[in-house]
């Protein structure tokens, strides 16, 4: 088996394959590491690792650099931050309960913080963001009920978006601590997950404010929207090839319960599709 011949052939049908890897240089250096361990360059195990790296986004997402992935995250955070700014500035905000106002202000603070952190990391990586994403004014609902609906869709989409790139961050070397100028030590994978779970807490609270279950059962009033569908819909009950409904004999949970116990991903293309967040960017 000739490893380089395989790459060459693969490149003929998929010209972007080398672009999916950190760099051509990284391919060679990883081969060097393998050689040091005494492994054959073309053993199936190494090839497996190689392809896993090139195609880590399991549902069409491309592996990018940390900077590219963080820019994507920043776009979503800017969208959310501007949405909550519009909520707080809205004429109906002042007439809501003190608790509701406090919750939205709290969530807005987190989104602002995420914008600040991601911007600082990108600047430190030498890849500063030059764009500011805003929430489309014409898509902003005038009424509180409509605003909370959008908030729920944005938060649940945000959770799916971060999850959709977590594997890519690992593949891009993001599981290792990096010393980022102006920020300090950052573990990109951990940082993204630390935002991801905060977004999930937001989603849970907004859903609860709207008298919905904090988790996605499929029977919520918005659970049928496109935001919960996609190539890996929230109704999925097979995880890592294991069918949750048959995994144990005498199962004690329903299809809906099994689906709710796992959240699912959206790819960048799905997130930015006009049926989801794409239509809200303005």
């Amino acid at each position: 088996m000739n490893f380089f011949e395989i790459i060459k052939q693969l490149a003929e049908v998929d010209s972007d394959v080398l672009g999916r890897l950190d760099s051509r240089r990284a391919v060679f250096s990883s081969l060097g590491t393998a050689a040091k361990r005494g492994a054959m360059a073309a053993t199936p195990a190494l090839l497996g690792a190689f392809f896993q790296k090139a195609y880590a986004g399991t549902s069409g997402t491309k592996v990018g650099t940390i900077a590219e992935i963080f820019k994507y995250a920043l776009t979503l955070e800017q969208l959310e931050a501007d949405f909550y700014k519009k909520m707080v500035d809205s004429s109906v905000f002042g007439s809501q309960s003190a608790a509701a106002q406090a919750a939205i202000r709290q969530i807005k603070k987190h989104e602002d913080a995420h914008v600040a952190l991601l911007s600082a990391v990108l600047t430190g990586l030498g890849s500063p963001s030059t764009t500011t994403t805003t929430f489309k004014a014409s898509a902003f609902p005038a009424d509180w009920t409509g605003q909370l609906q959008v908030a729920q869709l944005l938060e649940d989409t945000g959770v799916r978006a971060y999850k959709g790139r977590a594997g890519d961050i690992l593949a891009a070397g993001g599981a290792a601590d990096a010393n980022v100028t102006g920020v300090g030590t950052v573990n990109p994978l951990q940082a993204a997950l630390q935002i991801h779970s905060v977004e999930a807490r937001h989603a849970a609270h907004i859903r609860y404010m709207r008298s919905q279950t904090p988790w996605i059962t499929g029977s919520g009033d918005l659970d049928g929207q496109e935001h919960y569908k996609g190539t890996t819909p929230e109704s999925t009950t097979t995880q890592a090839g294991i069918d949750l409904l048959t995994v144990t004999s005498g199962k004690t949970y329903t299809t809906a319960e099994a689906a709710a116990s796992f959240d699912e991903i959206l790819t960048p293309a799905e997130v930015l599709d006009p049926v989801r967040a794409g239509a809200l960017v303005g």
């Binding site: 977590a166 890519d168 997950l193 999930a200 807490r201 995880q239 796992f262 959240d263 991903i265």
Partner: peptide, 15 residues
């Protein structure tokens, strides 16, 4: 990356 993906699906539900 597949392990990250899989555990990521669980952790947001825990959150």
């Amino acid at each position: 990356p597949l392990t990250v993906l899989t555990l990521g699906k669980i952790v947001s539900v825990e959150a």
